[in-house]
Amino acid sequence: MHELPAEWANTSPLPWLPSPVPVSLFPVNGEDREHARAGEYGEYREPAPESLLSAYRKMVLGRRFDEQATALARQGRLAVHPSSLGQEACQVGAALALRPTDWLFPTYRDCVALVSRGIDPVEALTLLRGDGHCGYDPVRHRTAPQCTPLATHAAHATGLAHGERLKGTDTVALALVGDGATSEGDFHEALGLAGVLRAPVVFLVQNNRYAISVPLSAQSAAPSLAYKGVGYGVRSEQVDGNDVAAVLAVLGTAIEDARAGGGPWLVEAHTYRMAPHTSADDPSRYRPAEEVEHWRGRDPIDRLEAGLRDRGLLTGEDVMAAAAAAEAYAADLRTRLAEDPTLDPLGLFDHVFSAPTPQLTEQRAALRAELKGR
Results as ranks from 00 to 15, higher is better:
Pro106Ser: 14
Arg109Ile: 00
Cys111Leu: 15
Cys111Asn: 15
Val112Trp: 00
Val115Tyr: 12
Arg117Phe: 10
Gly118Arg: 09
Ile119Val: 11
Asp120Thr: 03
Pro121Thr: 00
Glu123Ser: 05
Glu123Met: 03
Ala124Gly: 09
Ala124Gln: 09
Leu125Met: 08
Thr126Met: 04
Leu127Gln: 14
Leu127His: 11
Leu128Arg: 06
Leu128Trp: 11
Gly130Arg: 12
Asp131Glu: 14
Gly132Thr: 02
His133Ser: 05
Pro138Glu: 02
Arg140Asn: 00
Arg140Pro: 00
His141Met: 03
Thr143Cys: 15
Ala144Gln: 10
Pro145Ile: 05
Pro149Glu: 07
Ala151Phe: 01
His153Pro: 10
His153Gly: 06
Ala155His: 14
Gly159Leu: 03
Leu160Gln: 04
Leu160Arg: 09
His162Asp: 08
Glu164Cys: 12
Arg165Ile: 00
Leu166Asp: 02
Lys167Thr: 02
Lys167Leu: 13
Gly168Gln: 07
Gly168His: 10
Gly168Trp: 07
Val172Arg: 08
Ala173Cys: 15
Leu174Tyr: 03
Leu174Phe: 10
Leu176Cys: 11
Val177Ala: 02
Gly180Met: 09
Gly180Tyr: 07
Gly180Gln: 04
Glu184Ala: 15
Gly185Ala: 13
Asp186Trp: 11
Asp186Asn: 15
Phe187Pro: 01
Glu189Arg: 06
Ala190Leu: 10
Leu191Val: 12
Leu193Gln: 11
Leu193Pro: 05
Ala194Trp: 10
Ala194Ile: 05
Gly195Glu: 05
Gly195Gln: 06
Val196Thr: 12
Arg198Ser: 04
Arg198Ala: 05
Arg198Phe: 03
Pro200Asn: 10
Phe203Ala: 03
Leu204Asp: 07
Gln206Cys: 01
Asn208Cys: 01
Asn208His: 00
Ala211Trp: 07
Ala211Pro: 08
Ala211Gln: 08
Val214Arg: 12
Val214Gln: 10
Ser217Lys: 11
Ala218Lys: 12
Gln219Met: 14
Gln219Lys: 11
Gln219Leu: 15
Gln219Gly: 06
Ala221Asn: 11
